[in-house]
Design a binder for these strands. Structure first.
Lengths: 142, 142
DNA sequence: CCATTTACTTATCTTTTGATAACAAAAAGG
DNA sequence: CCTTTTTGTTATCAAAAGATAAGTAAATGG
């Protein structure tokens, strides 16, 4: 198989997915968070609680800037901080009730957009989609 | 099929792909362009020539800000401007020789990273990957 | 103990990005 | 023609994000 052609398809695919996911989360701008702050909240949504170091790693932010954004998120009442009892240097951050609610709304809206996209598919086609997602993750993303 | 479960998988998939593509284009930071400028160059790479309006639409930038970034890219010698003869209001932008060369390097590096990821796959598996990409584009991205 | 390392914070400054107003030139359409 | 619309530019200001220096407190490891 021609690896270059496959790479081209991968690039086009990536561009398309990026556009779709951007469209699905478009509504977030109405809420009062910046893009970087949203990325932090999204990360908290999937792995809670998290330390500033973990966030800095995964969101690709310096530790001082992570600290600043976390402070802003706390001021907005979207997340909470607690000291780790096992290691009192570590700070554990999690979404507050409001933060959970907000991210819940965002995900619900994204899911609704996703549902519309797959609305016309049959059961068999849905299974194909699921299989394709799993195959790409397994073979390409590792 | 459970649509919520499928959506969860889609979210995880999107996050993974985002991470991979970020890793593949990591080396661009060494070149002297900002993230927004890189997006413009990437867009020019796939569709040339482009007008400021088209860029503004696709890269999600206001027209004044697009104009500013295009000026910076021209100052850096990465793209060129020419007036459309058919409609002299329209400005046609394309990559300069340097710009082509730079994006060529970026794509070559990304392709190299991609090759490593698929290095262990058999011919049949590569065909599966290609089929999965096409299926998702057809059924979900439209 | 005590020096060193780790985890985080605060403060400050620069760069990048976003938003808006005002303008110019070409085209479109009576 | 002459008004209106389209396309793009320039200028300016504010907000967001990046970078770096300096400092604190807790843990680690002789």
């Amino acid at each position: 198989m021609d690896h270059s052609a496959l790479f081209q398809k991968f690039v086009a695919f990536t561009a398309d997915l990026h556009e779709v996911s951007h469209e699905l989360t478009r509504g977030v701008k109405s809420e009062d968070v910046t893009p970087v702050q949203y990325k932090i909240l999204e990360y908290m949504m999937v792995s809670q609680p998290v330390t500033p170091s973990e966030i800095a790693d995964c969101v690709d932010l310096s530790l001082p800037n992570t600290s600043r954004e976390l402070r802003k998120l706390m001021e907005k009442g979207l997340c909470e901080k607690a000291t780790d009892d096992a290691d009192r240097r570590r700070q554990l951050f999690r979404l507050s009730t409001d933060g959970q609610a907000m991210m819940g709304r965002v995900f619900a809206q994204a899911q609704q957009g996703f549902e519309q996209r797959i609305a016309g598919l049959t059961e068999d086609e849905l299974k194909e989609v699921e299989a394709a997602l799993e195959l790409l993750q397994r073979k390409v993303f590792q």
